[in-house]
């Protein structure tokens, strides 16, 4: 019995969500007195392999070619699971993970628990898993009916901790996937370069209609870059095309869970809060001291964004300079 984790690798480097998933998988394996193995999406650098070993991985499976397609990932995970008897599969609930997990569960004929936010408990039937439901307006305890299952874990919910177990072996998987089976022909992928993907960001600076117009977003971007944060916005802001759609957070946008969420000139409508309320720390900046956002914020600043933002950015820069 073992735990098998899918780890996205980019340019040889393990993405942060991969480290979280591996660390989670190792912890799960400890509870099961089992081993943890990993399948990387592409060739991992020697540093990345060392990282896997330090985290406590016992086996690293490698496929001959990069696993760019969902079909290939599902194929090799299924293969590795059946060849090596993996009983527990772990993926990160990113866009890629959301494409992989349901297909994998159906193909293997095992249950799926998605949006996992805590280390699950063993139960009589299999697992008890806690997940967010109703767009963060509640939690559900999900009984997974069956021990081997697929778990899709929410990014930024688990710490990365080392539990080294000794040597890690590398096992090459037989090359059995034919790319010609793929019916989706991808012509190009536009990557947003130099920006932190919103769903994976630890810090997010977000602004709403209070910013008055797209020409003022440099204030938001300066604060974000001083903090190493991603940028987000409220729904009307993306509806008016002040900002791209992929920055829209909330019930009908993206749901995020950063360590720090700074909301500037956003009223705090229930639909907006649904997407951000499980952020660990929330700062709200608003001219209106009655703004609903202050009811869910940890820190509040009653003030004009145009006045507060430059000073907050300067304060962060000063702090960074003195803590470098």
């Amino acid at each position: 019995m073992s735990v098998l984790v899918f780890a996205p690798v980019q340019d040889g480097i393990l993405k942060k969500i991969a480290l979280e998933a591996v660390s989670f998988g190792v912890q799960l394996a400890h509870g099961l007195q089992a081993q943890c193995s990993v399948l990387c999406s592409s060739a991992a650098s020697s540093e990345a392999l060392q990282q896997l070993q330090d985290l406590g991985v016992s086996a690293h499976y490698s496929a001959e070619h990069d696993l760019n397609e969902v079909d290939a990932v599902v194929h090799y995970l299924t293969q590795a699971a059946s060849l090596f008897g993996a009983h527990q599969l772990v993926v990160s609930n990113t866009y890629l993970g959301k494409s992989i997990a349901p297909r994998l569960a159906v193909r293997m004929g095992i249950p799926l628990a998605s949006g996992v936010i805590d280390v699950p408990k063993k139960s009589d039937t299999g697992w008890e898993v806690r997940r967010s439901v109703f767009s963060n307006k509640g939690y559900a305890y999900l009984q997974v009916l069956g021990l081997p299952c697929v778990m899709a874990i929410t990014p930024n919910s688990f710490p990365v901790e080392s539990r080294p177990v000794g040597e890690m072996k590398t096992v090459a998987l037989p090359n059995t996937f034919e790319s010609s089976q793929t019916k989706i022909r991808v012509n190009r992928v536009d990557r947003v370069l130099g920006k932190i993907p919103l769903t994976e960001a630890e810090r997010v600076v977000s602004a709403g209609r209070g910013l008055k117009g797209p020409e003022n977003w440099h204030l938001v971007e300066s604060l974000a870059s001083s903090l190493g944060a991603a940028t987000a916005c409220s729904k009307p802001v993306s509806d008016m095309h002040w900002r791209p759609h992929e920055e829209h957070v909330g019930q009908t946008g993206i749901t995020i869970k950063p360590d720090l969420y700074i909301a500037i000139g956003i009223s705090g409508a229930i639909q907006h809060l649904a997407g951000v309320s499980s952020s660990k720390v929330i700062v709200a900046i608003n001219t209106d001291k009655e703004a609903p956002f202050f009811k869910v914020a940890d820190y509040g600043i009653v003030g004009d964004a145009f006045d507060v933002l430059p000073r907050l950015t300067a304060a962060v820069q000063l702090f960074k300079a003195s803590h470098a």
Partner: peptide, 24 residues
């Protein structure tokens, strides 16, 4: 293959601490 055994509301925040706009 799964069943929800119970639901729970989110934990309420301790309350907002206001910081003076002049003291970032």
């Amino acid at each position: 293959q799964t069943q929800v055994s119970r639901y729970e509301p989110p934990v309420a925040k301790a309350g907002c601490r206001f910081v003076d706009a002049g003291d970032m």
